[in-house]
């Protein structure tokens, strides 16, 4: 069979001959490995589903008995029967609003700079590297930054005798340093979610076809006119989806707010940017940390409220994503 081959190849065996000479692996064995791996996959994947189900069911069982209109409209109390989440719910809403209003422009602005305006320079790559690293910073460390920068203004003004502007009763009351008011809380959470918003906005901008930008530039539009009229409108649904996910992170954060030193027991809702506040996750932490079962029920009920808020956020994100897909297709 090798007679026709040149002399150099004659001494060698054909690949088929070598392959045939090796002992065969058991086909049944390989198929069994395939099947048992699939079983492992299915088992482990269902485990994650079971974990989620157990988590949601136990929390519902623990907490739903405490849910009532009163629970939403009462302040926290030493007596479990009278306790509610009014202060922390409103605190969360205020803090998240401030966080969104500050993080969105800054985050999207950063993304626009990096994607549309920056030239390839050392500064640009340093900023990019920096943002990638910020995403890995633990949120409690951001709490320390917020405490020093916002709550204490680097110690430039004394916290005991702050510089005040306006009437403490009015909405337009400001003091320096901010202390542990909602403004300090919102800005601290802004630091936490900024990397998330920047990265998702960058992806959104990158998804806009290059040809639209060149089309606009060729008509004599400046870089900013192109960004404002063409690129940004085309990427806004994706930017909003990312922003909402970032907000749901912000609303669930407890550690950075805790570091600010907010009072754990509050019986008022915020009235201006300097008002004391607490947030839902911190209220949950407070209740969950107590040994009595009644407070655990309160914690579970507050978790249900928190998850309901998050679910609303995510539903909005899903609707936006659908609109985006419809617009694209």
């Amino acid at each position: 069979m090798m007679a026709g081959l040149p002399a150099t190849a004659r001494a060698r065996r054909s690949p088929a001959a070598i392959a045939a000479s090796a002992p065969a692996n058991s086909q049944a064995g390989r198929r069994a490995a395939d099947r048992s791996f699939l079983a492992l996959c299915l088992g482990i994947t269902s485990l994650t589903v079971v974990i989620l189900a157990v988590l949601l069911i136990t929390i519902w069982n623990d907490g739903h008995g405490r849910l009532s209109w009163d629970f939403l409209t009462n302040f926290a109390s030493r007596k479990p029967a009278e306790a509610g989440v009014k202060a922390s719910l409103w605190g969360s809403i205020w803090v998240c609003a401030i966080c969104a209003l500050s993080a969105l422009p800054i985050g999207v602005g950063t993304a626009i700079y990096l994607e549309e305006f920056s030239r390839r320079s050392r500064l640009t790559s340093f900023i990019k590297l920096n943002i990638a690293n910020l995403a890995g910073v633990p949120s409690i460390v951001y709490g320390i930054l917020g405490l020093t920068a916002f709550a204490r203004l680097f110690g430039m003004a004394s916290a005991d005798s702050p510089i005040t502007l306006g009437n403490p009763e009015s909405f337009f009351y400001l003091q320096l340093p901010f202390g542990h008011g909602v403004l300090a809380g919102g800005l601290t959470l802004m630091l936490v979610v900024l990397p998330i918003i920047i990265v998702s906005s960058q992806e959104a901008l990158r998804s806009v076809p290059r040809s639209l930008r060149t089309g606009s530039l060729a008509l004599g539009a400046t870089q900013w006119q192109t960004t404002w009229n063409i690129t940004l409108p085309a990427s806004i649904p994706m930017i909003m989806t990312g922003a909402i996910l970032a907000m749901s992170r912000a609303i669930g954060e407890a550690a950075p707010v805790l570091v600010l030193g907010v009072p754990l027991f509050i019986r008022s809702t915020p009235t201006n940017l300097m008002s004391d506040f607490t947030v839902l996750p911190l209220q949950i932490f407070n209740w969950a940390g107590r040994p009595q079962a009644e407070f655990h029920e309160l914690a579970a009920a507050a978790i249900i409220v928190l998850l309901a808020v998050l679910l609303t956020f995510n539903a909005i994100a899903v609707v936006l994503r659908h609109r985006l897909q419809r617009a694209a297709g």
């Binding site: 040809s211 060149t214 089309g215 606009s216 008509l219 004599g220 539009a221 400046t222 085309a234 617009a327």
Partner: peptide
């Protein structure tokens, strides 16, 4: 460059109407 491009229009390989 803006004035130049106003004076020199361009049409691209693939139609690129804005959305």
């Amino acid at each position: 460059v803006v004035e130049l491009r106003r004076n020199v229009g361009m049409v691209f390989q693939k139609p690129n109407p804005f959305p």
